[in-house]
Design a protein around this nucleic acid. Sequence first.
RNA 1: GUCCCUGUCGUCUAGAGGCCUAGGACAUCGGCCUUUCACGCCGACGACACGAGUUCGAAUCUCGUCGGGGACGCCA
Length: 462
Amino acid sequence: MTVRVRFAPSPTGFMHLGNARTALFNWLFARHHGGQFILRIEDTDRERHTEAAVQVIYDSLKWMGLDWDGPVLRQSERLSIYHEIAERLIAEGKAYRCTCTREELEAKKEAMKATMNRACYDRTCRDKNLGPDCGTHVVRFKMPLEGESTFDDMIQGKITKKYSDLDDFIMVRSDGMPTYQFAVVVDDLALEITHVIRGADHIDNTHDQIALYHALGKEPPRFGHAPRIDGLSKRKGSPSVEYYREALGLLPQGLINYIVRLGWSHGDDEIFTIPDLIKAFDVDGINRANGEFDEEKLKWVNEQQLRLVSLETLADHVLPLYEKKGVKLERGPELDKLLEMMRKRAHNLNEIVDDSMFIFRAPESYDEASVAKHFNAETPALLRELASSLSEVGTWNEAEIEAAFARVAASSGLKMGKIAQPARTAIVGIAQSPGIYEVVYFVGREETLARLERAAKFAETK
RNA sequence: GUCCCUGUCGUCUAGAGGCCUAGGACAUCGGCCUUUCACGCCGACGACACGAGUUCGAAUCUCGUCGGGGACGCCA
């Protein structure tokens, strides 16, 4: 039996992190077992499901690298199928039409709550055998009255619920649209889904759905309910893939690595490449208790991935960010060298870009603290001596640049730190940067000399 | 309220009866490295929710208590 799983989001306009993890679990499960990962858009209800919102789903999935198999299924395109199956269940006495109004329902629930201590439908229409001409109505499922529903959850183990605690849920709304509860089963059947991995908030629904499978004479798929991610809603921005990606300068590998480990583990392993994950992932590693989202650890994992991915991959993500800043860069050994230098110290993509802008733009001002600490009366002369030494460098490379610094150190009798820090302040604008020789190399000879002279003039005024 | 799931350091977790005076990771604190900032390295702090049972022996099994989350929609 080939494994077939699906990710079935409803288009809300953003990809919630919890949803992203559900998608990831399913995708990894499919890839691990050599199965298929199907994408289905749950757009049964509402006009607010815009095309733009659907596009967000595609974009997020693509960014994460979660490719899906086969065509995308849209529930909105399958209405006649739902109707057909609903009619069949009515004809077989497994479902029924109900004409109770919303107002009546509300009153009934209140009453049931008072007498039975349970808010549910009182099944007024269950045995009325209402025909299609009964006027405005919904279609309800005829839930068994006695016994219990049990299923073996791949993550949570055996889960049992009494049928008497289950309601005659609505399958088709009065406007003719199927409810989620009904459409999911019909679609999962049509798609021949073998395993359903989803959020734990669906545990109770599962009993309804399994009852439906039985009514249809079908075997239900295996279910696995993953715990929820807590601590997400109290964030400033929307707790979405898009938000964290931008705000934290995330690499998809970073997000994926963090998110998969929140609720799943493989011994003491922390950092995984995507191929690692495909090999190691399975449902038995998924935990049962909810997890608390921790932005600090997400940052750290992302940082580790920053150092792990190929320079080509890194360039893919960093090039557009540079372009946003008005810096167009070409791929090649120079860019690789730049990224190699930056990825060692940066915590995220944004930092790589921001902290390397000094290469492309001369400082507009000098950091006050740096100036106070590293500039003094001798600074102008020192910077000019360094400039002169650098102008004599033959081949422009780090070794030669270092030699130029060493000559200044020898002639001035100053320790390297006393030269590097003023130079750094002069060239970068602040006394914090990558190694000074690399900095000088990337800024280039002409520009370095210009910046040194400008800083020397500035230092004279102090 | 009823029902369902769940409970190891602040957080993510290892742990499937003796290997546990409970291991790893993030964060925090201290130190080292260093021309800066980072990185890296070393160390410290820090948990089996509680109570009964089962057993020679329990973080691991059972029950109860308490805590956390979820479901109770003509939302998905």
